[in-house]
Design a protein around this nucleic acid. Sequence first.
DNA 1: CTATTTTTGATAGTTTTACTATCTTTTTAA
DNA 2: TTAAAAAGATAGTAAAACTATCAAAAATAG
Lengths: 234, 234
Amino acid sequence: MKHSLRMKMNESLFLRDPELSELGKNIIKYSVQLISKQGFESFTFKKLAESIGTTEAGVYRYFENKHRLLVYLISWYWGWLEFQIVFQINNIDDPEKKLQKIITLLSKNIEDDKSTDHVNESLLYQLVISEGSKAYLTNHVKQDNKQHLFKPYKDLCKLIGDIILECNPKYKYSRSLASTIIEMAHLQNFFIQYLPSLTDFAATKSEHDIISFLNHLVFSSIKNAELQQSNKKK
Amino acid sequence: MKHSLRMKMNESLFLRDPELSELGKNIIKYSVQLISKQGFESFTFKKLAESIGTTEAGVYRYFENKHRLLVYLISWYWGWLEFQIVFQINNIDDPEKKLQKIITLLSKNIEDDKSTDHVNESLLYQLVISEGSKAYLTNHVKQDNKQHLFKPYKDLCKLIGDIILECNPKYKYSRSLASTIIEMAHLQNFFIQYLPSLTDFAATKSEHDIISFLNHLVFSSIKNAELQQSNKKK
DNA sequence: CTATTTTTGATAGTTTTACTATCTTTTTAA
DNA sequence: TTAAAAAGATAGTAAAACTATCAAAAATAG
């Protein structure tokens, strides 16, 4: 039997729920294509409307502006990823193994998930790598945050943070380490593709190197209790 | 005696060197003000021209477009920061102490440096925190990179990476760790200001916590030799 | 199964942004 | 002191980012 996965999205993100109509689903589908291929800056509702075969006004009925649409796509991704993570670590007891699994899921380009028809996760992963931080790097972060637009990201960060605490309940930087893992998995990926000299992986250009790096970084830090106090004194 | 510091900038960044005229210096000065206060997206050459008291065309004589101006400002910052770092670690022999100094310089909001008249470094630091990654998160990274627009960032990354290797010549991820330090010092700063639940520092909102976190993270990883091979097998 | 509501399509228009062009005046530097 | 370079002033274009309106089509409720 086939299962289909549906995210429940924050309603302030859209004017009309795009998952409830063909046009809406097309807006999602084609915006992922266009943004992942040409970048968010050169993406316009006009181009989107043309590639769908509707009009600009049609798109504006679903999304207030292109930034909201971007945040929608990215939130969708975080929600989807959290589900994948929860699913995949479900039967694992060892928190360290959980964390390793998470690092892998964050670092590896994913295949298109057939249970979500209108979203190509592989393209969406590239989109989140290149455009993800633009969701919050705006002068209206505070207002957006008040509307809980970043909840999926925060939830994921908390989930990972809590697993870090399972590994070492005395670790003091669980949230910051969690956000570091998330951001760095993506950013090292971006650097490998476009600015390889900012990484050590120019030769192989392999995600496995990112995974090794992050595992080493994360577990060294989590397991190292002694330094946590002493650094402050220096 | 007063010293004045002058960065030599990549000439593809501008059409006319802004450091060589009053108008040019004003473009730098006021763009830092405007972008750091209102954000890059709402920044326009028209607003800039108005606040300087010149015209849009005047600004276009110096910079091709606002993205080039942004990259100019950010490159200037990386160049300036590298100088600060080289200056401050000059008499330090212990590479670990050097690295600690660097982490501190990256994480702490800086005071306005009087040796650079037309640039307010404190504002520029906020600008780099919020807009820094927009320099390279574009669909024209590759072309920009071919024009060496990101050289100052890469140079800094190499500088830090080399010091990491001084600490432990066998450490395998010096570049990636260096870019992680740079990015995270800024991003945790951003998160503290705008999305504190992504950090562990919501209570104190203090840069010192970021410094402690990064020190712990970095030195745990650098000093932990054993894990470097074993993780691959898992 | 028809009447009513909702959604979409088609068209048009406004304001702002991102630029380009041109000409004149002022400043600078040989 | 004169020519070259820079700055000021003005105008204009193309595209982006919306808003508005009205008719056609589709969904749905009674």
